[in-house]
Design a protein around this nucleic acid. Structure first.
Lengths: 163, 163
DNA sequence: TATTGTTATACTCTATAACTATA
DNA sequence: TATAGTTATAGAGTATAACAATA
């Protein structure tokens, strides 16, 4: 550096430590940051299973609800029907689920997990549980319960407004 | 319909109500859903100000930290430097902030909000506060405090791992 | 007419590589 | 050699319109 700059001079132009105190007052800010932690951790956890967040939750819902229709899945996952098609395609091509024809309504598909899909799903759920337990080790059981209750309350407060 | 199908037969193929009980056990599932509520509400709240989520938090951080550098902003917002450039461009073109040259280090920009930017920021923050208070009306002050504490704990638990 | 699944498309957010000008 | 800002680009996630088959 050709010019010697004292700390005092430098502070005129630089910021020593960034203050996010205004944003810290907002729940949305904390929600986003906490969600990012959980999300990036889960992405790494699911990677060995070849699953991403959406294909994972889709597979879990199909395992839990044999015969579910695509429109029901889309509604539960709060995504649009077109965006679900590629996910279903991928799960089917990997042999984890099957689209079955419905005699009652030949427009619809009944989705069912294969034995392979159910096995993979169980393993992925177990891995998810293990990692989440590690991440939440700092919270007491009481804190975890009230955290989930508070989040569910926020979700309910938002029902009835647009997504 | 050529074939008469009784309710009993129909239930073989359809799902009456979708069960998400496996996913409900996971904090990540609740976090995502609660965050979606807050997020879509905030998007609507900020729309009259011409701000989106990222341009909003960027503006707030610049107002709170006059002279902040872009790399500091990116680190605080947990986004990549390239993705910040377009946001800064937009805020600058709207006359809400200015890029100032730094004599010490001619590679860097010192970011400062204009008077217009500070005014808009204050108004947007006020609107955000009002809406969040409405959404959280169902939670006691105690619940809100412990909720934010729990989220901050999760965020800390994730520090030291990749984004 | 309305619904189910589908295709095509577009917009936002996010991530990486590589360039420039400085240091 | 490393850093700050930038450009270009590509990948997810998400949203809408419109179509075919079926109800």
């Amino acid at each position: 550096m050709s010019k010697l700059v004292t700390n005092k001079e430098a502070t005129q132009y630089a910021v020593q430590t960034v203050s996010d105190q205004t944003l810290r007052h907002f729940l949305g800010y904390h929600l986003k940051r906490a969600f990012n932690v959980i999300r990036s951790d889960l992405i790494q956890t699911l990677e060995p299973f070849g699953l991403r967040l959406l294909s994972y939750s889709t597979l879990v819902l199909i395992v839990d609800n044999p015969g579910i229709r695509q429109w029901q899945l889309a509604a539960t996952l709060a995504i649009e029907r077109p965006n679900l098609v590629v996910i279903i395609d991928e799960l089917e091509q990997r042999g984890l689920i099957a689209r079955e024809r419905v005699p009652d309504d030949r427009r619809a598909n009944a989705l069912r997990a294969t034995a392979v899909g159910r096995r993979l799903c169980a393993d992925a759920v177990k891995a998810n549980q293990a990692r989440e337990a590690e991440l939440l080790a700092g919270l007491s059981p009481n804190q975890r319960t009230s955290l989930i209750e508070a989040l569910a309350a926020i979700e309910r407060a938002g029902s009835g407004r647009g997504s």
